[in-house]
């Protein structure tokens, strides 16, 4: 199941929620040249998960959901333009677990 919030997609597969960039967000920021993940295992909704510098803007990306960060797209640190990819396996940011399913369900349909 796939939802959207904060100009991001959130895809739920079993208990893992993968956050990725929407095409609209990709269009608005341009080519990504630098990314820095926020540290910390658990994040609260609206806290930053990623800071990026792109050709059109400098942006802090905030998570729409509270959860535990189990994986970050570390490949994007070395190759930031992966976040401009149309492929979900390349343009994702973080994977979360321990997410409140009710909060997820309240998000807008993607």
């Amino acid at each position: 199941m796939k939802k959207r919030g904060n100009f991001l997609f959130i895809e739920k597969q079993d208990d893992v929620y993968t956050i990725s960039l929407t095409p609209e967000l990709q269009d608005d920021i341009g080519t990504v040249g630098f990314v820095e993940f926020s540290t910390g295992d658990t994040i609260q909704a609206e806290e930053p998960i990623l800071n990026l510098e792109a050709s059109k803007t400098v942006l802090e990306i905030n998570t729409p959901l509270t959860g535990k960060v189990v994986e970050r797209n570390e490949a994007a640190v070395k190759e930031p333009s992966l976040l401009n990819s149309a492929k979900p396996e390349e343009n994702w940011i973080v994977k979360l677990t321990d997410v409140d399913e009710a909060a997820f369900n309240k998000l807008e349909e993607a």
């Binding site: 630098f34 800071n51 510098e53 400098v58 942006l59 802090e60």
Partner: peptide, 8 residues
Amino acid sequence: GRKEPVGK
């Protein structure tokens, strides 16, 4: 240590 994001 990095540029200032928009909206902050």
